[in-house]
């Protein structure tokens, strides 16, 4: 039982960072970012090179991961998404563009980083035992840093001027513009922060899971599941989705050793969406 709780907590914290980034972008510019998993992958590779190859401090790797993915996100928003969203009235155009950016990053990554799986040494080696359960210090570190980052993001969105501007944009884009919010700059900032969160999640988890150039799509799918559970565009919903998925995996794998766990997760998700298509904390009106 202890191990199930530990696994659930660790998985939930890992997933929370991934879900928060994608939900932030969705709430601000109403875009389901299909390249989220690819940004996760880029962040992981940055930490691999900074910490694993050049042997610089792990924190420096995280900073580089956040900066590089933030810049990629900002550039994508400015040069790809903003023009398309300005000129197109159909939502699927930006969605297709998002798929295109995902494929672009996948191909560039395969070319730049190669096809091999990469990994880095633990920042804190060793394993602690809690009431019969096992928790590696590295996973504890990821858990703590994830919680701190989630806290910092919530504080930023709630109490800072750019954070308030992002919330205003999420609620009503036109009203925000009328109230003097620089919509273009705020959109770009939101996309950059969302991308940086994906990069940070990748940078943290490369110490636990390693990374390969093809890892992006699977991460994106998990991110989509979480925001479908919690409610797209709602920060609290993303966190809740992460906890639900993390514990569903942990409990499921413990009770059902076969492939039934994800089968049941998907069946439950479909049934849940039939009853509550907006997710647990989402609003029916969007």
């Amino acid at each position: 039982m202890t191990q199930i709780l530990i696994d659930g907590c660790v998985l939930s914290a890992n997933y929370a960072l991934i879900a928060l980034g994608i939900t932030l972008i969705f709430s601000i510019i109403n875009l389901l970012n299909f390249a989220h998993g690819e940004l996760f992958m880029v962040g992981a590779f940055m930490v691999y090179y900074v910490y694993g190859v050049f042997h610089l401090p792990f924190v420096a790797g995280l900073v580089v991961a956040a900066l590089v993915t933030a810049v990629i996100g900002a550039l994508f928003e400015k040069f790809f998404f903003a023009p398309v969203m300005r000129s197109s009235t159909r939502e699927e155009n930006s969605m297709l563009l998002a798929v295109g950016t995902a494929l672009l990053l996948d191909s560039v990554a395969l070319f730049a980083f190669g096809h091999e799986q990469r990994g880095v040494p633990d920042v804190i080696p060793g394993v602690m035992q809690i009431a019969g359960g096992f928790l590696p210090y590295q996973r504890l570190l990821v858990l703590v840093v994830s919680l701190v980052l989630v806290g910092v993001l919530l504080w930023f969105v709630q109490y800072t001027r750019p954070g308030r501007a992002m919330r205003a944009l999420a609620q009503d884009r036109d009203a925000a513009r009328l109230m003097g919010v620089n919509v273009e700059r705020t959109s770009m900032l939101g996309f950059a922060i969302g991308a940086a969160l994906a990069g940070l999640a990748g940078g943290l988890l490369v110490t636990v899971q390693g990374i390969s150039a093809g890892a992006g799509p699977a991460i994106s799918i998990k991110a989509f599941i979480m925001i479908m559970i919690g409610g797209a565009g709602v920060v609290g919903g993303a966190l809740l989705g992460a906890v639900v998925l993390g514990f569903a995996e942990s409990i499921g794998y413990s009770l059902l050793p076969g492939s039934e766990t994800y089968l049941l997760i998907f069946v439950a998700l479909i049934l849940f969406l039939i009853i509550r298509p907006q997710g647990i904390m989402g609003h029916p009106w969007g």
Binding site: D7, G8, V208, A218, Y253, S254
Partner: peptide, 21 residues
């Protein structure tokens, strides 16, 4: 002891999968 334990092809975290084994 276990003949049919599986994990998702895209899985990258195996703590929960391996715990029962």
């Amino acid at each position: 002891l276990s003949a049919d334990a599986t994990y998702q092809p895209s899985a990258t975290d195996f703590f929960a999968v391996l715990s029962p084994l």
